[in-house]
Amino acid sequence: QTVTLRSAHTNAVGEVQDEGLRFLDRRLRELTGNRLGLQIYPNGQLGNELPMIEGVALGTIDLAVPSHAAFANFVRDYQLLDMPFLIRDYGHLMRVAGTPAIAQLAQAAQGRGFRVLGLYSSGVRHLMTRDPVQGMAELRGRKIRTQQNPVHVAAFNAFGANATPLAYGELYGALQVGVVDGAEAAYTNFVAQKFYEVCKHWTTVGWLSLTAPVVLSERKFQSLAPDLRAALVQAGEESAAFERQFVVESEAKLVEQVRAQGVTILDPDKAPFQRAAQPLYDRFLQTEADRARLRLIQETA
């Protein structure tokens, strides 16, 4: 008698979150003698990020992997992870993942009926553009597509660009014909959606380390036998560690693919970006708890 969890993510098959969930599925079946597993629905088949999280809250989906940016619409505390340049690189993320700051965020989510099983990485975000952008000064006045998120919009406006939220499905066409001049993205988006066909320039700003909490419905979690719950907690952490490592390894291959497509990769001076982003910390992190967690993450070596 296998319990299968209806699990949704928005990556394509074989992309990082898909691999992470497959690992989770394998590990769960090993740990429980095939009594617990996942049924994985990729590609946003069960809905985009917000509906996916809503589905977990309503019990129509058991498990989802939304970005922390989308999840912050439900659990405000996760906005902390949206702060530009907060997480410095992949190594830093791996060390931060184990800190009490992240555990506190999971605690806050639990109060809203979400059990967070781990924190996946969705890659570090850079900038793809139609024309070269060597540094922050050259961003001035350019229309850059961001996600529909107040921090992301504020960040790119702070960098001097004209932040333009646009549906992801319209992005390729908008870049192709020049409705927008560029967009922020991770290597995996750049390659998987073939954006390199319409954006020949890639500026490694690394302005945000996008993460994705693995979110299970708390009600579903509580309905499981204690040993299954323990297996979920263990396998969740293991799959997150695996997934974050997988992101690092697959990115090396992606960089090669980007080069092979004849894309120029520019490495800008990050200091002006970091300075421009500083005021956002005060603007968006206003509670004492937010600030305490901010310090915890910043002080993590």
């Binding site: 809503e54 619409n73 439900f74 405000r76 996600q147 529909q148 998120n149």
Partner: peptide, 13 residues
């Protein structure tokens, strides 16, 4: 039911 969940959910923009 959605209104109940929506009470503590904010729209993105």
């Amino acid at each position: 039911l959605l209104m109940q969940v929506g009470a503590w959910q904010t729209s993105p923009a």
